[in-house]
Each structure stands twice: as structure tokens, then as C-alpha cells.
Write a protein that binds this DNA or RNA. Structure first.
Lengths: 242, 242
DNA sequence: ATTTTTGATTTGTGATCACACTTGCTTTGA
DNA sequence: TCAAAGCAAGTGTGATCACAAATCAAAAAT
């Protein structure tokens, strides 16, 4: 009976090989569309067609239509009565609505995280912030896409520590919904010369380090409110229902 | 130029006819599965197959697979690594997690509703409650399905008044996720002889009538906490990870 | 010149098929 | 007797086709 020997051999093999994973085409399409949506690559009110996306992503229509269906159910996209789908338009009510929901839920998540984060996790987000500052110091021209990605990583690194498998998907859905709006605001920001998000982020990690849930919540709300408030003003003055 | 006359005629016709709607098969499948899930017709951990459901619903596999995909993204169902899908199992952490999220979000929704409901809307939910009492008085044997449906109508009639297009879909998703758990609790309840949900509901409408947002929130949290607490105890004593 | 009608193209939906993977059972070998 | 190999039924995924509805542009009618 060489059973033990075989077992041993398998373990050796397993140690050297990394699992290959079996992501479906549909999953890749879904991820790609999510990325585009959060990154603001699609404009509000833009209409998307199944065949158009399938051509762009070089697949058949099947994975695309299923991905679109999923995005519609989480309100990241909108199904028109004509059965065509578009990214939801920006309205004043929607902006306020999204901000309220995000403040409520992300605030709760960070409050939970504040009580649960261990020193290692706090050090991790601090390191992330330092790396971010460094990058910002090096690059003269600001790379908006990179900024957005880092911002996303920063927030979700914290949210993950709240330990709620229910809240986190909701937050992802909210980011998906506010992605197109936010991106419009960020670009406007950038033109207006404002950039200092770093200050808010430092307040957040300071509060987390002190395990001060209430302060963390307030700092976070201040952070996410800023682009929404900016967008709100812009929309009110422009009275341009995109 | 009889343009005005034709217009008029069309209006007359439109006034008599009720829009027929163009629900797709996929939508019907989705609604049906939602209903089943919220109603607790599926057991936690139960595995669902596309072809099985397609046979049961008398359609092809196509609408079913898309409906399943949508339910998976809103965490009403769970995709196993084997690519099979099941209704999520009940665990202690999940129960606490769901209760926390529901208290937070439905609490916010009812607090908003308390400040926004007009007398007509309040009268409407009061009427609903009265009708409910009446039904309960008539029927000796309690009809759990009917109870659940009325409870759902009652809650969402109120939530709709919060005026948030973002919060309401989230609440629907939460009901979808807690449906299977709740149903287990309700049945256990029923066996244990407890039934008095009416008391909680009366507290809720009383608070709403007084426009007391905080009281409404507290009454609501008490209402939704009860089955969760019951289920929690049951699960802890049975140590039976369904 | 403006409106209506007609026709061609595009689009979403549902059905069906082919393929790969999983699963459970039987058979084979030690 | 028992574990491993092999086989067969079942299952999810993606591609393709058919069809109906929507959209748009040109042509016809007023």
C-alpha cells in the first residue's frame, strides 16, 4: 500500500501549481462592464446594445445579454420600456438619494470596521495611503483613472473589515449606481483645480486607528459627500438634465 | 385637417382600454421565483437546476437561466463552485447580518416615510390593518401564506412612501435574502403558538400617524427582530446547520 | 411643405444544438 | 473485499437561428 506515498507526491505537485480557476465568459463580460461603469467610461443616458457590446468584447451575444440582465437587476443599468437598456440618467433627486443611501450604509460598514480592525489591517490601509501620497508626489500630471482605482481599493479594503457579507454587496451595488455620476463630478473637479482628497482619507484612518467609530463615520461621510455636493451644484446651475 | 378630431378619438379609445403590458417570459419566471423565495417555498440549501425549473414552469431553459443569474447577483441564490445553484444555507452569522442590515435600511426608510406620509396614505395603511384584523377574526385556522402576503403588502406600502428609488430595491433584495430564513421561523412560531404580530403593526402606524420617525423606527425594528430572534434561538439550541 | 405610409435594417427574445464538465454507478483489477 | 478506473446520465455554458417588435429613412399623399 503506497497510498501514503501517492498522497505525499500529490501534495508536492499541489504546492508548486497554482489553481487555474474557471471563469466563464459571462463572468468576464460582467466584470468588464462593472469596471467600465464604476470607472465612468459610459455616459449617463447612453444606450447600450447587446450586439454592439458583443462585438466590442469579441464574444457572442449570449454572455452579454446575461451580464446586462444582472446589471439591470442591481440598478446599474436601466431597462427602458422599448426593451433597450441605457445607463441611468443623472437627476437631482437621484444624486441626493444615492448620497443618502451611501452615507447610511457605508457609514454603518465603517463604524463596524472601526471596532473590528486589528493593528495589521490598520497598518495595511496606512501603507496604502502612504504609497498613494508617494505616487501623487511623483506624478505631476494627475492620472484620474489611477486615482479612482486607488480610491476604490482604499474604501473597500476598509469595508471588508466590517465582516458583513450582506452589506458589502450592497455597497458594491451603490458604487455601481453612482459610478457614472461621480465620474462626471471628478472630471469637473479636476478642471476646477480641486484635488485634496488626501485630507479626508487621513482623517478616516486616524479615526480607525483610535477605534473611534463615530469619527470614522463622520469622516467617511464628508469624503463621499464632496463629489456629490459638487455635482449637485453643477447640475443646479446648468439645469442640464443629462 | 381633422388632426384634432383624430387626436380626440384616440383619447376616447385610450380612456376605455387598459394597457396590456408586454411582460417577457423571463420576467414571469423571475417574478415567480421571487415569489417562491420570499414565500419560503424553497428550503435553505436546496439545489435548483435550470432544466428542472424550466420543466416545472413549462418553458425552455433560456428564460430560467437568465432569471437565475439575476437572482444570484442579488444574493437571493448562491452559485456553487460546481456551477450549480442553491438557496443559501442558514447560519448564525447570516441571521445576525441580515437582521442588522434590515434594521438599518428599513429603519431609515420608515423614518423617511414618517416625515413624508400624507393623511391619505396613513389612512390607507390603517385600512389595511383593519382589514387584516377582520380576516384574522373570521378565520379560525391561520393561513400562513395569506398572513405573509399581507405582512409584505403592509411593509412595502409604507416603504414606498419614503420616496427613495435607491432604498426600496435594496429592501426588496433583503426580503429576498431573508425569505427562506423567515419562513422557517414563522412555521416554528406557528407551532409554538405565537401569533401576535398585530401589536407591533399597530405601534408602527401609531408612530406614523404622529409623524414620530424615531418611534416608527423602533417599532419597526422590534417587529422585524422577532422572527430573527426566534430563529436564532432555535438554531443555537438545535445546532443544526441547515 | 408637412404628414403619413411604406419598406429595410436593427434589436431583443426565446428555442435549440453542441460541447465540456460533473456526478453517480458499474465494472474491473489487485 | 475494497479501491480505482470507466462509463453513462445529467447539467451549465456558449453559439446560432427564427421571429417579432422597434427604429429610421425614403417615398407617397395630402
Amino acid at each position: 500500500m503506497q497510498k501514503a506515498a501517492i498522497e505525499k507526491n500529490n501534495e508536492v505537485i499541489a504546492a508548486q501549481l497554482t489553481p487555474v480557476g474557471r471563469e466563464t465568459v459571462q463572468d468576464r463580460v460582467y466584470s468588464e462592464l462593472r469596471r467600465a461603469l464604476i470607472g465612468g467610461l459610459f455616459e449617463p443616458s447612453q444606450v447600450l446594445t447587446i450586439r454592439g457590446l458583443a462585438d466590442a468584447l469579441v464574444t457572442s451575444t449570449m454572455p452579454v445579454r446575461e451580464a446586462l440582465g444582472r446589471l439591470i437587476t442591481e440598478k446599474a443599468l436601466e431597462a427602458l420600456p422599448n426593451r433597450s437598456v441605457r445607463v441611468p440618467p443623472i437627476t437631482l433627486e437621484r444624486i441626493d438619494d444615492l448620497l443618502r443611501a451611501r452615507s447610511l450604509i457605508e457609514g454603518e460598514a465603517i463604524a463596524l470596521a472601526a471596532t473590528r480592525m486589528n493593528p495589521r489591517q490598520i497598518a495595511s490601509v496606512e501603507a496604502m495611503l502612504a504609497e498613494w501620497d508617494e505616487m501623487r508626489a511623483l506624478k505631476h500630471k494627475k492620472d484620474i483613472d489611477r486615482e479612482a482605482t486607488l480610491n476604490q481599493s482604499f474604501h473597500f479594503e476598509i469595508y471588508r473589515c466590517c465582516g458583513s457579507a450582506v452589506l458589502i454587496p450592497m455597497i458594491e451595488s451603490l458604487w455601481l449606481q453612482s459610478g457614472p455620476c461621480i465620474r462626471v463630478a471628478i472630471y469637473a473637479f479636476s478642471d476646477a483645480g480641486e484635488v485634496d482628497t488626501a485630507h479626508y482619507h487621513r482623517s478616516i484612518v486616524a479615526a480607525l486607528a483610535k477605534q473611534d467609530a463615530q469619527a470614522a463615520r463622520e469622516a467617511l461621510v464628508a469624503d463621499i459627500s464632496r463629489p456629490f455636493a459638487f455635482l449637485r451644484d453643477k447640475l443646479q446651475s446648468a439645469k442640464d438634465p443629462i
